[in-house]
Design a protein around this nucleic acid. Structure first.
Lengths: 163, 163
DNA sequence: TTCCATGCAAACTATTTGCAGGGCC
DNA sequence: GGCCCTGCAAATAGTTTGCATGGAA
């Protein structure tokens, strides 16, 4: 279920930076991998890790997430709910962090892994002389499910009016 | 210095939503307008407003910023420093929130008011069936000043090596 | 032994809330 | 009078830090 090769790679990255992959850190990484698109907060990661490693402390989770952020294995993201959320970069996604679709009705967060910004980044570099290293892009709007749901509600209301 | 017509418009928006433009609220709006690209935190807004309205409370600033957010006059933004920052939407920028360039070296935040995402949004709507209402886009990298600075440092180091 | 890493608890910081008072319609 | 708004202080919530302990090299 979890990509062991990726865990190994992360272990190597930690070692190279002078950190060890302790059982707590490994359990944290595994939880993140098992919820790759979960956009988990520190607390949520903590609760998940606790299932496999019950006596881990919340502070350790915070410290691990901080290390993973430093190593650019995860990115901090925020969807304006007051929490920092931790989002795993995909293996190999060195220069292209994925994009998000945030539904303002149901709150669901979808991911887009296609690189949509290549041309825009070239333009920014040329026009604003800004050297782009990374980006964060979130679209806010209505997901397909909520659009359908709204259409149905609207149709039902029209029907009722007619009767 | 401050666009009075815009203040009036905001006043009208508040009224329409059932709020009053009290002196405290007006002072807060004016401070935001005077620092349109300042990406101020609540605390920073508070300190600025205090200059003109010394006995305003921090809670009032928070409450005002919350109202302005609801009315889509400001947007909350976050640059991963743990603070919520409040960014004035431009008058008329109903459907297009501006973009940000965040320099990872000096921390400066630049704004881009050109709409760069029109085509990308069409693509998202067609391909992902997501109805885009708004977006948040931040590029992270090196601003022109820091690039120049780095080149100079590098050149000086090379020069020193030669001598 | 040395050094990193841990869990716990305390500290800290940003933000929110409760409440009594005050002003305006 | 009723209602919204305010300032203050207290409460809350997320995150960070200090410290004594423990384990691996």
């Amino acid at each position: 279920m979890v990509d062991q090769a990726y865990v190994k790679k992360i272990k190597a990255q930690l070692h190279q930076a002078g950190f060890k992959l302790t059982p707590q850190r490994e359990a944290t990484v595994v939880s993140l991998l098992q919820n790759e698109t979960g956009h988990l907060s520190a607390e949520e990661v903590y609760l998940l890790v606790k299932e496999s490693t019950p006596d881990i402390g919340l502070a350790t989770v915070y410290r691990t997430l901080e290390i993973l952020t430093e190593l650019n294995i995860v990115n901090k993201v925020s969807f304006n709910d007051g929490l920092i959320r931790y989002d795993l970069r995909r293996e190999g996604a060195q220069h292209h962090f994925h994009h998000h679709l945030q539904c303002m009705q149901c709150g669901k967060i979808q991911e887009i892994h296609e690189d949509l910004l290549h041309d825009v980044e070239r333009l920014v570099e040329q026009q604003y002389h800004f050297e782009v290293q990374d980006h964060k892009l979130t679209f806010q709007g209505l997901c397909a499910d909520c659009q359908r749901h709204n259409r149905e509600v609207k149709a039902a209301a029209a029907q009722e009016k007619k009767e």
